[in-house]
Computed example of a mutant assay.
Amino acid sequence: MENNKKYLFDDPKNVKRLLNGFYVCCIVLLLLDFVIHRHTYHSWEELWGFYPLYGFVGCVVLVFVAKWMRTFLMRDEDYYDKLENPDIKPDNQVTKGDHNVDA
């Protein structure tokens, strides 16, 4: 039985519309920076486009920190299987029992 149901984002036109909506929202928010008075605490907050730039740099830094953390936090694909069943060797062969030679 095949699932022929089409979802909203299966159509590339809908994805393009959504992205265009996001772009329009970003441009409007950036243009509002000219007309909305902000109560700033630091002089660098008065720079035009400071908050979009700050957000972008923050996201880029977050991605690089996550990539660095991945080097020491990443576990093998079968990490939890090994914890639940210590009889499984790293190459997924069972050492005890007479069944399941290869998992």
Rank of each mutant, 00 (worst) to 15 (best):
V24H: 02
V63N: 11
K89C: 11
T95K: 12
E2L: 15
G49P: 01
Y41H: 11
G49V: 04
D76C: 10
Y54R: 11
H42A: 10
E45I: 02
A103N: 12
R38S: 10
V35K: 10
V28P: 00
D87L: 06
V60N: 08
P12R: 07
V94H: 09
L73R: 09
K89T: 14
D91F: 02
V24Q: 02
F9T: 03
N100R: 09
C25P: 00
I88V: 03
V15L: 11
L73F: 06
L29W: 00
E77A: 05
F22T: 05
C26R: 02
W68S: 06
R75E: 09
K89R: 12
T40N: 14
M69Y: 12
D33K: 09
F72P: 00
C59F: 14
F34P: 03
D91S: 06
A66C: 08
K6A: 03
V60A: 15
N3T: 10
L29A: 01
V65H: 07
D91M: 03
Y41T: 11
I27N: 00
K82M: 11
H37V: 15
L8K: 08
M74G: 04
K67M: 14
E84Q: 15
C26V: 00
T95G: 05
A66K: 05
V61Q: 07
V28W: 01
L8F: 12
P12Y: 07
Y80C: 09
V63G: 14
D33C: 06
D33S: 09
I88K: 05
E84L: 15
L32W: 12
K82Y: 14
A103C: 08
P90V: 02
T95Y: 06
N92E: 11
L62H: 13
M69N: 05
V35W: 12
A66V: 04
G55S: 04
H42K: 12
V65K: 08
Q93S: 14
E84S: 13
E45M: 02
W48M: 00
K67A: 12
L53P: 00
R38L: 11
F72S: 04
N92P: 01
N3C: 07
W68T: 12
G49T: 05
V24D: 00
Y7F: 11
K67H: 12
